[in-house]
Design a protein around this nucleic acid. Structure first.
Lengths: 242, 242
DNA sequence: CGGGCTTTTGACGCCGCTCAAAGATAGTGG
DNA sequence: CCACTATCTTTGAGCGGCGTCAAAAGCCCG
């Protein structure tokens, strides 16, 4: 976790200018934001927030993937969501984290001290407006996942998950594109309500049918997107236009 | 669906003054809001929004319960969430509904024309601030349900669901209190990822164990809340303080 | 009283979880 | 460069919970 000399200190290098919190702001407003913003980075596996621990920052993901999870009473980690660039890490108005957020790839955050952030939101309507947009996006994202989990068969869930990853990680969907899976079989299973063995079996079944290629355990190539979408059934996660 | 002569036309009768969209606003701001607000009511079973249909209103629930659902390709209705007073029905910035919202009890809405609402949010920071709070609340609500669905056993899911209903419908939780179930066995099953028969069986099993009493098929009485919470396991939905 | 809908209850079979063990892969230190 | 360990993945075998199918019972409304 560092906050100096990072290339994104210069907002012009920011990879999510078009969809970030500040994306509706004019240059003056952006200067104001930039003045109090800090950049932090996390290595894969590092905790960004821990349930029950206080957290003085509000931040958004600029780069990388993180999970939203909790440790259940039985000691298992339950994954309930994924965070991608533009998502909010800790919500405003909540000083104690209600979930664990764990980096799964190298993660870069754009951070604000909570009090300063809340003041700024009051002063800059463009910021407030974008903030609630993002909050609704995340609500809808969670709802889409709920619809997905409503599908009972494990094949549908897994195929939907792959389609979803393709959508979130690569805005430009090309054929025969390699996706790096940010999660282990275990974590995918947790996210989809399946056992890790079931995930492994179906992934290999997809490969045997020629729908995907398993490059290595963390990299797959989509060979037949339409077959995958058919297997996903009626619930393509986040079906709306880009 | 009517919009005249409703008692909530007078905001002083509003049952959710303390948590509504306008709850942070001062009197001047409330007058401004009241001037453009309309009240609508829906009977049980009526569609409030329909997926794919355009909707010119933004509204919040003042009274009643509604489901968030979709019709899947196989023709089944999949329930992904419940809406209670204070929840937002149609999000700002989305003119076409992405889900069906269906009244399950008599529902009263406080409605705004979309354009007017968005202008108003820009002018009144108190409103913008409360709006994103509610959006984050709904996001977290959906996430809690995701954690619930992560629990594999049907008993845990159903017990958690009852505890959740108790929490959302009756802020004051009294012992031996009767809850009216807003959903049929079928809908509960859809919401919990279970077959309706499984719901029915476990409900009766709870009754046989003395945890609940089934007054009639839509009314149950909680007899042993701690037993229910134990059965719910590690994931009490919305565990935070009231 | 009759028709439609919801709920209950029973019987059966399958999908996916569990348990178990062997193969991969990566990281570490000698 | 090669053991050695730890972790993740794959694959197999078996069982059980829950979905499915079916039918009966209860309830509502005309």
């Amino acid at each position: 976790m560092t906050n100096d000399l990072h290339p994104f200190q210069d907002c012009s290098n920011c990879p999510i200018n078009e969809m970030a919190l500040c994306s509706k702001c004019d240059d003056d407003e952006r200067d104001q934001i930039k003045a109090i913003r800090t950049i932090q980075t996390f290595a894969p596996g590092q905790d960004i927030t821990v349930q029950g621990q206080s957290n003085g920052l509000v931040s958004t993901i600029v780069e990388g993937v993180a999970t939203v999870s909790r440790i259940m009473e039985d000691g298992q980690r339950q994954v309930a969501g994924l965070l991608f660039p533009e998502d909010i890490v800790t919500r405003p108005g909540e000083s104690v984290a209600s979930v664990d957020i764990v980096a799964k790839t190298p993660v870069t955050l754009c951070c604000f001290e909570r009090g300063q952030f809340e003041d700024m939101v009051e002063e800059i309507p463009h910021l407030a407006s974008r903030l609630s947009e993002i909050a609704f996006d995340e609500r809808d994202e969670a709802r889409e996942h709920l619809f997905l989990l409503g599908r009972t068969t494990s094949t549908e869930r897994l195929a939907s998950f792959l389609a979803y990853l393709l959508h979130r990680k690569n805005r430009r969907v090309g054929p025969t594109q390699v996706i790096r899976l940010p999660l282990s079989r275990d974590e995918i299973g947790s996210f989809l309500g399946l056992a890790l063995e079931t995930v492994s079996r179906h992934l290999n079944a997809f490969a045997r049918k020629g729908m995907i290629e398993i490059v290595d355990s963390r990299k797959i190539r989509i060979l037949d997107l339409t077959a995958l979408e058919n297997a996903a059934g009626s619930v393509p996660l986040r079906a709306e236009a880009s």
